[in-house]
Nucleic acid binder design. Structure first.
Lengths: 128, 128
DNA sequence: ATTTTAATTTACGTTAACGTAAAAGTCAAT
DNA sequence: ATTGACTTTTACGTTAACGTAAATTAAAAT
């Protein structure tokens, strides 16, 4: 297995090292350490980082992201655990669907307004 | 024409009066004042407030919302103004479409994962 | 007329998500 | 071995979007 240093990840994802350490502060990533204390990140850590950044783009808070990650990261071997995860996932999925509907409606309204404006512009240009 | 007081709006939209005054501080709403200095909000102010809250739900910052509102609020009587507004609107529409695609992909991934989990759960229950 | 409720301004406090800087140790290259 | 780049911890600073509280004034209700 090979590792990434903090600056390698920081460059790859175009974020500061402070940001990466901050995610660790909040318990989202936990890299291993060399004897001297330097952080080393595994492929999995890198994947988690990717997830965090993606979650951020969707507007989720670090706390929400943490919740999701830790839930999907726990061992879901037990039936109870699996059921809980599915329940949580379905709740989140519902929220996502609602979000999509909201966005679709917004899109529709914007299109309507734009059409209206374009019509007006044409009228203006026709009367010149 | 009839007006709303700040607490009427605050109750209707379930936000604090501080919040409404803050939006004014940032230049988003500008109510008229009585002689004694009390704020009075028109129907239009109320509509703007609605827009702000909606924008917030979509994750826009107050600054972005301000930008949009003031653009659509300007007199678009001139052809140049109208063209500018349309251009801006089309840019925003493009961004919204991208956002929707992102959300749709997220939804798809969540559904896939959930299906996977459900399959596992069935297997678990079948082997009892 | 007086109590109660609502409004105003001013100003300091709070939280999330980092930025920035200092001091000190460590690794890589010459 | 020394320079320079990198890393660490500690800690204070910053911005947005309000919350909270105090002091004062005005409006509404009794």
């Amino acid at each position: 297995m090979n590792f990434y240093t903090i600056s390698q990840l920081s460059q790859e994802f175009d974020i500061s090292t402070r940001t990466i350490r901050y995610y660790e502060e909040r318990g989202l990533i936990v890299p291993i350490r060399t004897e001297s204390g330097q952080r080393l990140y595994t492929k999995k850590d890198r994947a988690v980082l990717k997830l965090i950044l993606r979650g951020k783009r969707f507007g989720f808070s670090l706390e929400e992201i943490h919740e999701m990650i830790s839930l999907f990261d726990k061992d879901r071997t037990g039936r109870k655990q699996l059921e809980k995860t599915i329940e949580y996932g379905e709740q989140k999925l519902k929220e996502v669907k609602e979000r999509i509907d909201d966005w679709l409606q917004l899109k529709h309204e914007m299109e309507t307004i734009l059409e209206d404006f374009k019509t007006r512009l044409e009228e203006l240009e026709g009367s010149e």
